[in-house]
Design a binder for these strands. Sequence first.
DNA 1: AAAACCGTATCAGTTATATGATACGGTTAC
DNA 2: GTAACCGTATCATATAACTGATACGGTTTT
Lengths: 126, 126
Amino acid sequence: MISFEHFILEDGSPIYAQIIRHIKRGITAGTIKNQDEMPSRRVLSALLGVNPNTVQKAYRLLEEEKIIESRSGAKSYVTVNSDQVEKIRSQLLESDTRTWIEAMKQMGLSREGALRLAEKIWGTPD
Amino acid sequence: MISFEHFILEDGSPIYAQIIRHIKRGITAGTIKNQDEMPSRRVLSALLGVNPNTVQKAYRLLEEEKIIESRSGAKSYVTVNSDQVEKIRSQLLESDTRTWIEAMKQMGLSREGALRLAEKIWGTPD
DNA sequence: AAAACCGTATCAGTTATATGATACGGTTAC
DNA sequence: GTAACCGTATCATATAACTGATACGGTTTT
């Protein structure tokens, strides 16, 4: 079963989008793998304290992206092949990093300045 | 007059929030300074192709944060002292960077791996 | 077979975001 | 002074996002 242990609701972006991002990041990290069992809509909504319809929207969109599969009545499963994983990984890493770089540039930081800042905030390497 | 030359509307976050972020990043970068003249609501909305009410919402929130001042009938001006600038700067840099770091961690990257990725995507130092 | 889940669907209601139009009165520039 | 611009306010409207409740039928487990 996929863990949502470290999932924290942020503000600013829609909840359903945050759920989708969490799944994709897990796939990128390798903590979510092909054929993994998804928590049911009811269970996840109770876990996150949100409405079941919000979770259903996230799952529906994940299904449209062919990342999960659902059968009426049964549980939903992750269905990703290695090509999809690689695609998701490169897209997420690049877009998240580009967003950060753009912000740093807008605030006048040089490449080295931004990297030093990130290094400092990250803290001890892990 | 504050420049919105490189401002591009993104999707995902509200337009008024993007405007606020643009101003704050400009202040952090030093390209927007105390007593700078803000573009009028009408001008900026025309420039961005959005509704004047959307710009007004951004300006109202900036005013509540004491970052700009408006007098009915007259133009609006940036009103930030050096303490505010430093506060805005540290808040923005830290939150943007923490967001990126959290994403990298969720995707299983080590500190060094993430820094190398950022270095590569940034390209030539500037 | 029955109970316990599950995916799916639908209804209504609220809030946030954005658009569009218009108006009033204050300020600035000519 | 007057025209042009400005901040501010108020309508109405539309859509997206989220909540809450409920229901139907399929699957799994016992």
